[in-house]
Design a protein around this nucleic acid. Structure first.
Length: 603
RNA sequence: GGGGCGGUAGCUCAGUCGGUCAGAGCAGAGGACUCAUAAUCCUUGGGUCGUGGGUUCGAGCCCCACCCGCCCUACCA
């Protein structure tokens, strides 16, 4: 048994999440976490919404809402969506809690005490009307090199040259068109160069495991070459106050500094709510514990560089030495599991262009498991993957419904018709032994692949096993055994089939937990096979220290009843009625409907 | 501009150390069967492995150049 931290990327509360988001971090992390629990490991799965940063303020202005109300609104939507997908978080919280603030401030202070936070003066663009930092990307102007009128502050999209916002001719804010002011400002910088050697050693060690996806490890090592100090504070009035700068309300911690600390603060919050406030340490201080971080590729730098650098600084493990703070020596990531991007046809999902499929809409129309299946079978695991409605319908109908759903249905129908309960088996023939062995071997094959985060291959292997069981029924032809003399053989074949369906259901349960519960019931099982998360309203633990909530919704759950990753004998005599289909076949017309909907036409 | 990833059958993608690697699933075609949501099972896969060079006895797999797509480059997974 190993303690496994499943650290799942924190969705940003600037809108509802689309299916590309959950394809990147959500479903893969849940499949892995569910599997690891089944394999007997002690999993702690944490995440939450990431609610600070300039984009929130810009959007709040646009929507005419205070930032706090805006993040409350989208936090609620995201919580509903992720819980609806069945993502089995132990705690899904948020960054605007007093508890998170306290942990972030402690991390900051210890990093600073250890010498890894350096105060520097820089020139930054400020919005004169709001006094906020104007990030380079929010500034545009005329490119001094090619004369392109809409060059961004950080780069000209026309000639490709990297720019400094102060170089732009006629710079203006993309938010409101005003001319930014460039002025000197004080900020705390994380001294990444002083941590570079330790980071490099850690990455080399990680590379040696051979487990990281090659693009992630290579990218991470590469960005180490040009490492520079990075500002961990901002001129903004939305975020976590900077310790020591409480008298300057327009200085806050950089959103990414605090967001990654969420993995730690959520773990501590979880333990505290459990009533065992030190229990989180089993995942963070024990060097034997493992931690897996799930995200999209645009987040790699924050998880393979910034976050480990913060941890090393906290642990006092960089060039400047130092001592860990009260949280002790914290574990660095075992593995950074990054997905590529799911695209919508040929282009990226884009909320602003309306080229988007929201998780909530998808769940309402098709339910969680068809989406989970699609993401596992065709998701952006090692390269960008294109979602199309036609492909979704095809995979749903010809793989999920016709392959797996049909096997469940035909097996249960024959049992219901002939026995009404799972019959006891007579003597097994070779064909029976073979199919049972094939299914049992599936646990090794599928499990290894999930452990390596190869979900596409894993679910394909599980579906191959399903195909073997379908073949078994075709070969043994139980539906032809109508004579009384064949009754024992019929019972044997159907018993074996039921056993295989049950085992296939276990094999597929990390991917399709909702369907797993239905199949479990079809075979006369009692209760829930796979535990599900729930939404719970909780009280703020540090009401005086946070962003003003007194209570908020979290996703949590009780997962100790998770079944083991192994074949479990079916219960002879368990009642089996004529089943209703577990999966729904989709009419091909939904492709047209969805395309019309995307085009903004009434469906 | 710099860095990264990718371009393999109609579609979506596998191809670890260079030598049965030219593959899988789906779609299509033919056949069998009927328990099942017309589902299942069997048979059927000549695609210049983006382009042009190079290294090698031998290259999707290594090197060079080029074309195309995507991502990162201080705040959209």
């Amino acid at each position: 048994m190993t303690r496994v931290l499943s650290a799942v990327a924190w969705p940003y509360t600037n809108g509802p999440r689309h299916i590309g988001h959950v394809a990147g971090f959500g479903v893969p992390s849940d499949v892995f976490s569910r599997f690891m629990r089944m394999a007997g490991h002690d999993v702690l799965m944490v995440s939450g919404t990431d609610e600070h940063g300039t984009p929130i303020l810009v959007l709040a202005d646009n929507e005419g809402l205070p930032a706090r109300e805006l993040v409350d609104k989208y936090n609620q939507v995201i919580v509903d969506d992720l819980c609806g997908l069945g993502l089995s978080y132990d705690l899904f919280t948020r960054t605007t809690t007093g508890y998170h603030y306290a942990v972030v401030q402690e991390m900051f202070e210890t990093c600073r005490r250890n010498g890894y936070m350096v105060e520097e003066t820089t020139k930054t663009a400020i919005s004169p009307s709001t006094g906020r930092t104007l990030p380079d990307r929010y500034i545009e102007g005329t490119c001094p090199i090619c004369g392109y009128k809409e060059a961004r502050g950080d780069q000209c999209d026309n000639c490709g040259n990297q720019l400094d916002p102060t170089d732009l001719i006629d710079p203006r804010s993309k938010i409101n068109g005003e001319t930014p002011e460039f002025k000197d400002t004080q900020h705390w910088f994380l001294d990444l160069p002083a941590l570079a050697e330790a980071l490099g050693e850690w990455l080399d060690q990680r590379e040696a495991t051979g487990l990281w996806r090659p693009n992630v490890i290579k990218f991470s090592q590469n960005i180490l070459k040009e490492i520079r100090p990075r500002a961990m504070t901002r001129d903004i009035d939305w975020g976590i106050p900077v310790p020591g700068w409480e008298d300057q309300p327009t200085k806050r911690l950089y959103v990414w500094f605090d967001a990654v600390i969420g993995y730690l603060s959520a773990s501590i919050e979880w333990a505290r709510r459990l009533g065992e406030p030190e229990k989180w340490r089993e995942w963070w201080n024990d060097a034997e514990a493992e931690s897996y971080y799930f995200m999209g590729k645009d987040n790699i730098v924050f998880h393979s560089q910034i976050w480990p650098a913060e941890l090393l600084a906290y642990n006092g493990k960089g060039d400047k030495g130092g001592e860990p703070g009260p949280y002790g020596t914290l574990n660095l990531p075992t593995e950074v599991v990054s997905s590529e991007f799911l695209t919508f046809g040929d282009s990226q999902f884009s909320t602003s262009r309306g080229n988007v499929i929201y998780v909530g809409d998808f769940l309402a129309r098709y339910g969680p498991d068809p989406l989970r299946y699609y993401i596992c079978a065709a998701g952006p695991e090692t390269s960008d993957a294109a979602f199309t409605w036609a492909d979704f319908v095809t995979r749903n109908n010809s793989e999920l419904v016709a392959g797996w759903g049909n096997l469940v249905n035909r097996t249960a129908t024959m049992i219901a018709k002939n026995f009404g309960e799972i019959p006891a088996a007579g003597p097994l023939e070779e064909v029976d032994e073979q199919v049972l062995a094939t299914v049992r071997d599936g646990f090794t094959g599928v499990g290894d692949l999930i452990g390596k985060h190869r979900l596409r291959a894993a679910i394909a292997e599980a579906m191959r096993v399903v195909g073997e069981v379908n073949k078994y029924l075709t070969v043994t032809e139980p539906y032809k055994m109508k004579d009384e003399s064949q009754r024992e053989r019929l019972a044997t074949v159907l018993h074996v089939a039921a056993q295989c369906v049950s085992d296939c259901n276990t094999l597929l349960s990390p991917f399709l937990p909702h369907a797993a519960n239905k199949v479990h019931a079809v075979l006369g099982g009692e209760g829930e096979l796979m535990p599900m998360p729930r939404i719970e309203q909780v009280d703020e633990l540090e009401p005086d220290n946070g962003a003003g909530h007194t209570s908020y919704a979290v996703i949590t759950g009780e997962y100790t009843s998770t079944p083991a990753w192994e074949s479990r004998p079916v219960v002879v005599g368990a009642r089996v009625d004529k089943p209703t289909p577990v999966f729904t076949k989709l009419d091909p017309s939904v492709v047209e409907e969805e395309l019309a909907r995307a085009a903004g036409e009434p469906a």
